[in-house]
Structures are given as structure tokens and as C-alpha cells.
Design a protein around this nucleic acid. Structure first.
Length: 423
DNA sequence: TCTGGGGTCCTAGGACCC
DNA sequence: TCTGGGGTCCTAGGACCC
């Protein structure tokens, strides 16, 4: 038995925690660079704001309707997410943090009233973090997703809680659920399934699993079996080690100068190094990519990547920066308007095990480099954020993203701490 | 003027091994 | 006329997730 706890309209709800006056009002949160709509409050959904809509195209219309807009504030969302997960861990030590706003809990050993437990989870998270959540209970993860969806729609017996095993209208619910709304089925597979006459979750649950595996893959077969009540996706209680690290951004404006791109890639490589070291990993490969905007009509689209295989795995930001700039040298074409770039570390290894190299001339990371990196990380940790870096980052700042509607970092910056006045 | 940023898994095919 | 049978590893591409 598994519970899926999912925060309602997470980013929008986070913005309300420190601005309660926004309760009941339509809110949207934008992607980096204030590009697209990536989260909407229920009120904004009701007004017809589409998920993924380019904000510059629809902002006039919706701001006239009173929609409040926010740039994304991941410092805030990440901190609130951590707090929610801490609360949930009190209810079951066996949990899988599935995403920034979702968590699966193993309740198979819970003997009490499950709906009551769900209601207590909803109440506690609300009271301790200020965030609304919904709970779906079911024998499989995929069905827990369905149950959560029903709970959010207000069908649950306990308000925001729905126990699938107690739900009298299972078949009707699955029959009314479009197949592409099932977890693990998106538009492409949905279209192909419809061609096969499988248009609803019920039809998928009753489809022949072997045929699904043959036509699609074992992934869809599992989804179908899960819908039919057979658990195929175990809880991942221990998060597996990360396989790759990526840092990439769209620029605040188009870049044409190589030095500007170098500045951006320096910052990205630095950030990648921080992520690498936080997880106690090294990388053997540094890949760098740039591209122009696919939406720019004037010029033809250019996208390219360069991959550098290092002689020794490294966790040294200096090495990452040098490799990234070297890679850029291979793919930079003058005269283009670059819109985005990134650094990818696709081949990670644990920090402490290192494969030796038989014919090696270059030195790998040494104790001195390790100490330097630890020192760098210590200096750059909050509150002295971004205290020390590499000089090539100073060659330009035009790449930095637009964030015209950002709320304060109320939980992660002393200067942004809310002040409560008492009388 | 302006269109996000991360990740994962699976499969097929090619290269290699004995 | 005719040329085996079993493996592994790696990568690219395509799908999915939030």
C-alpha cells in the first residue's frame, strides 16, 4: 500500500506562504528568464492560462484580469520542499522523494484507518509549512497517481484524501480517464494507443501486456499492469547515485561575442563542479553545447556540442572551466546570435574510486586540488554566496537571466527574512 | 524584445569477445 | 552449394517524468 503526497500547485502555493494576501487570487509562476508559464494557481487555471504558454504573448491579457506573476524562485521552493519532506518522514520512514513536490510513502505496515492518516498528513503539512497537499492511496504507484488526481478534484471521502481500495467507482473512473493522462503515457504514446483502440486508462489496464511490450516497451507494459493492480514499480527508498549533471541556461539576451559565451560557460562549469562535489563524484567527460534560438526566423538554426574526454576523472572546477572553454573553441562560429549554452557531465564516478591510467602523462586531481575545491566551496556557501570564482566569468554579464517578478528568498537569505510585528 | 531546466529508462544496432 | 552460437559493452535515439 502506497500513498502519493503531492503539493497542490506547488510553486504558486509557495509564493502564497509569505504573501497570504494572494490567497484566492490567480497566480502564475514563470520559467527561468520569465519565459513560459510553469505553474498556475487554481484561479489562474480557471481563467484559462495555459501550461507552457510564452508569457510575453499572453501577459497583457491575463494581467488585465488581475493575474499575479512571479519569476521562479528555486531557493524558496527548494527550501519549502525540504521542509515538506521532513514532515512526511515522520509518518513513514520508508519514503521516496519523487520530485520537488511529490513523495511516495510506504504504508503497507500501517494497520489503522488509512483515510484518517491521510487527513492527518494533509493537516500537519498545512499547519507546519503552510502548503496544501493531496493524498492518494493505492496498491500501486500508478494507481496512487490516479487516486491523488481524484483527491485533488475533491472526490475524496476525507477532503483531500482518496483511498483507491475504498473507492466504489474504480471502473468508471478509469473509463473516464484519457489514456494520455495516465502517469507514464504522454501525447506520443497516447496517439499510438488510440490508433490501437486504447483511449482510456481502463482500456490500457485491460490491454494485453505482452502485446504492449512488443509494440512499445516493457515500460508501458508495467504501466498497464500497475493500472490493473499489479505492483511493478517498487519504492526507491535509497536514491541511486546520479548518472549525469547538467547546467544550462537560456541567456537574458542573445550573445554574439565569444568572450560573453566564455563568461557564461565559466559560471556553468563552476556550478557543475559544485554539484559534482556535493555528491562526492568525479567526472571523466566534459561536454559543452551552444545553440541559437529555434524561434529566430532570420538566421538558420545552429546547434553544436563538443565532448572532451579527460585523462583522469576530476572534481576540480578549474579543469572543468578549462575544458568547457576549450570545447567552446571547437564549436563557436562568429556572427551568430546565441540563445543558450550548457555544460554536461555525462559520465560520473564515485569520488573515492579511481580507475588508473596505464599510459598517462597528465596528473589527475591531487590533494592540493581537493583542498582548494573544499576551500572554494566553503567560501561560496551562503551567506557569502559567489565570493570567489574564475576570472573568465568577468568577461561578460549580458547572459544573466531576466527575473523581473522575483519574490524574496524568505527562507535562505538573512536580508530577505520576513519581519513580524506584534502588538 | 521576449519561447525552461533539469533528469531517467529502454531498445536497437554495432563492435567486440571466445 | 555450403560458413555457429553464445555472450558483453557502448552509444544514439526516442520515449517518458517533474
Amino acid at each position: 500500500m502506497v500513498a502519493l503526497v503531492d503539493c497542490n500547485n506547488f510553486y504558486a502555493s509557495c509564493e502564497r506562504v509569505f504573501q497570504p494576501a494572494l490567497m484566492g487570487r490567480p497566480i502564475v509562476v514563470l520559467s527561468n528568464n520569465d519565459g513560459c508559464v510553469i505553474a498556475r494557481s487554481n484561479e489562474a487555471k480557471a481563467l484559462g492560462v495555459a501550461m507552457g504558454a510564452p508569457w510575453f504573448k499572453v501577459s497583457r491579457r491575463f494581467q488585465a484580469l488581475g493575474v499575479q506573476v512571479f519569476s521562479s524562485n528555486y531557493a524558496l521552493y527548494g527550501d519549502l520542499s525540504r521542509r515538506v519532506m521532513q514532515v512526511l518522514a515522520r509518518f513513514s520512514p520508508r519514503l521516496e522523494v519523487y520530485s520537488i513536490d511529490e513523495c511516495f510513502l510506504d504504508l503497507s505496515s500501517w494497520r489503522g484507518d488509512r483515510t484518517a492518516l491521510g487527513a492527518e498528513i494533509v493537516h500537519t503539512v498545512q499547519q507546519w509549512t503552510g502548503l496544501p497537499v493531496s493524498v492518494g492511496l493505492a496498491p500501486t504507484k500508478t494507481l496512487a497517481k490516479v487516486a491523488n488526481r481524484m483527491a485533488k478534484a475533491g472526490h475524496g471521502a476525507g477532503g483531500a484524501v482518496l483511498d483507491w481500495t475504498q473507492w466504489p467507482a474504480q471502473r468508471e473512473t478509469l473509463a473516464a480517464l484519457p489514456v494520455e493522462d495516465v502517469w507514464g503515457v504522454s501525447t506520443r504514446w497516447g496517439a499510438r494507443l488510440r490508433q490501437m483502440g486504447i483511449a482510456t486508462a481502463l482500456a490500457l489496464a485491460e490491454a494485453n501486456p505482452t502485446r504492449l511490450r512488443k509494440v512499445f516497451s516493457v515500460v508501458l507494459e508495467r504501466t498497464a499492469r500497475e493500472l490493473a493492480g499489479q505492483s511493478c514499480l517498487p519504492l526507491e527508498l535509497v536514491p541511486p547515485s546520479q548518472r549525469q549533471i547538467m547546467v544550462s541556461r537560456s541567456f537574458g539576451q542573445r550573445l554574439t561575442q565569444r568572450e560573453e559565451l566564455e563568461a557564461a560557460l565559466t559560471a556553468f562549469a563552476m556550478r557543475a563542479g559544485e554539484k559534482l562535489r556535493r555528491q562526492r563524484l568525479r567526472t571523466r567527460v566534459v561536454s559543452v553545447f551552444v545553440h541559437t534560438s529555434p524561434f529566430d526566423r532570420a538566421a538558420s538554426h545552429y546547434a553544436n556540442a563538443a565532448t572532451l574526454v579527460l585523462e583522469h576523472p576530476t572534481r576540480d572546477s578549474g579543469r572543468l572551466v578549462r575544458s568547457a572553454l576549450q570545447g567552446l573553441g571547437r564549436i563557436f562560429r562568429p556572427g551568430l546570435a546565441y540563445q543558450r549554452a550548457g555544460v554536461l557531465l555525462p559520465d560520473l564516478a564515485p569520488e573515492q574510486v579511481e580507475q588508473g591510467v596505464l599510459f598517462s602523462s597528465a596528473p589527475g586531481d591531487n590533494a592540493r586540488s581537493d583542498r582548494l575545491m573544499d576551500c572554494l566551496d566553503a567560501l561560496n556557501r551562503s551567506p557569502a554566496r559567489r565570493a570567489v570564482g574564475y576570472a573568465s566569468e568577468l568577461q561578460g554579464h549580458a547572459w544573466r537571466m531576466r527575473q523581473r517578478h522575483k519574490s524574496p528568498a524568505s527562507l535562505s537569505n538573512w536580508h530577505d527574512l520576513p519581519i513580524v510585528h506584534a502588538r
